[in-house]
Design a protein around this nucleic acid. Structure first.
Length: 433
DNA sequence: CAAGATGATTACCG
DNA sequence: CGGTAATCATCTTG
């Protein structure tokens, strides 16, 4: 009885006294008589509930004051937890089991794609730095690489936008979450809101935000796809290499006809010389080998042309080399590229050449380096030494190096010079004059 | 414009 | 991964 009276009084007093809650604190009596008056407590609760129910009927000030009074009531914690429990139970029954959704497959797909495209995830080699480097490296180089760096730059742009947006979303999400959490915590003083419910609310917010994120990811994916397709289209729109580039490539090809497989370094050098990429060099050689092999006849003229061309250089070099080797002992064969090289023993050379004339050239009898010299020198000899008659058929440039199967002989055989197996045909006119 | 040339892409192979 | 073969798509030429 005493309690109730106090509450009533305090509430009344508070409401009347506006916000002066000084004496309104409904503190329990110093010597709490716990459990002494169960009836009184029931009455207590009934009364509180009544007040809660009628709180909306009152004016704002009144309600505010009463709220505070209720908030400070000693029964409040118990009532709070009970109400929370009730709410929890009804809430759970309403929400049912639709919680704990598994990871969205579509979201995973988007994530994977963004990761694969290098938009999401760690900055892999193709960042803005790489794009800039590519652009710098190809200064004035082929359009292809320019387009490539352009693509990279655009991709980087997309990546940046994506990341800033994502960050924005995340920040907004966090801000909103903390805001809501504070709000709910604040409200939990007057409303039955359990921590668990706050947690759940946070989860709901996160899900909402992740659905927004998914939209972002989706549109980013779309952007990447569009960029990609455009880039591929652009790449399809090829342009022929410059005349000079084709010249250089052809020169290399025909001067290495027996083994037209430039090494990685050679490719790089050719790429640099031709202002194209290494992969373009690879493409070119791939195409060239195939097309040459497919229709050797068609390439005869070209072959002769380039052979003659390189032969001029070779002749000069050879002459110089011969002069040198006349003075000194024969130098060791070095790289067969259009640099300086030493002539091998003429007899051996003719032996190999003779074997080359046959269609069934089995295996490179000479090292690749020597072989390449042979390729270029054949014309010199054929023209200077009247060797035409000995050449097979009417073709000046027979497809030596190609074996019967149509594949190029693996000219990486050791450079030990082996003379042709048997010699019925070795009646080579030894023109070693 | 049709045909051929040519650079790039793709599938497949060892 | 580098090679071949087939094919595509565009450029060049007559």
């Amino acid at each position: 009885m005493d309690d109730q009276a106090r509450i009533m009084q305090s509430i009344g007093g508070v409401s009347l006294a506006g916000h002066s809650v000084q004496g309104g604190m409904p503190l329990p009596p110093p010597h709490g008589h716990d459990g002494t008056d169960g009836d009184g407590r029931k009455q207590d609760i009934g009364d509180i509930l009544h007040q809660i129910m009628t709180i909306t009927d009152q004016s704002l000030d009144e309600a505010q004051a009463k709220k505070h009074g209720l908030n400070c009531h000693r029964m409040k914690p118990a009532l709070f937890s009970v109400l929370c429990e009730i709410k929890e139970k009804t809430g759970l029954s309403i929400r049912g089991a639709q919680e704990e959704d598994p990871p969205d497959p579509q979201l995973m797909r988007l994530d994977n794609m963004l990761l694969a495209e290098g938009v999401a995830g760690p900055e892999k080699g193709g960042g803005s730095a790489a794009a800039a480097a590519a652009a710098a490296a190809s200064g004035g180089a082929a359009d292809n690489s320019i387009e490539h760096s352009d693509y990279r730059a655009k991709l980087t742009q997309i990546r940046q936008i994506y990341h800033t947006e994502l960050e924005k979303y995340e920040q907004a999400c966090n801000e909103f979450t903390t805001h809501v959490m504070n709000l709910l915590r604040e409200q939990s003083r007057t409303r039955p809101i359990s921590p668990k419910e706050i947690e759940r609310m946070v989860g709901i917010i996160h899900r909402k935000f992740s659905s927004i994120q998914m939209q972002l990811k989706q549109s980013t994916c779309e952007a990447v796809m569009i960029l990609r397709s455009r880039f591929l289209d652009a790449r399809r729109k090829r342009r022929n290499f410059s005349k000079q580039a084709t010249e250089i490539l052809n020169e290399y090809f025909y001067s290495h006809l027996s083994n037209p497989y430039p090494s990685e370094e050679a490719k790089e050098e050719l790429a640099k010389k031709c202002s194209i990429t290494v992969s373009q060099v690879s493409n070119w050689f791939g195409n060239k080998r195939i097309r040459y092999k497919k229709n050797i006849g068609k390439f005869q003229e070209e072959a002769n042309l380039y052979a003659a061309k390189t032969a001029v250089n070779a002749a000069h070099a050879a002459a110089a080399a011969v002069q040198n080797s006349q003075a000194n002992s024969p130098t060791t064969p070095n790289s067969g590229s259009s640099g300086s090289f030493s002539l091998p023993n003429t007899g051996d050379m003719f032996l190999s050449m003779q074997s080359l004339n046959g269609d069934s050239y089995q295996g490179a009898q000479v090292g690749a380096n020597v072989q390449s010299q042979v390729d270029t020198l054949r014309h010199v000899i054929s023209q200077t030494a009247g060797y035409n008659d000995a050449l097979a058929g009417n073709t000046m440039y027979s497809p030596h190096g190609l074996n019967a199967n149509g594949g190029w002989q693996d000219a990486t055989t050791p450079s030990s010079v082996i003379s042709p197996t048997e010699g019925p045909g070795s009646v080579h006119s030894d023109t070693s004059n």
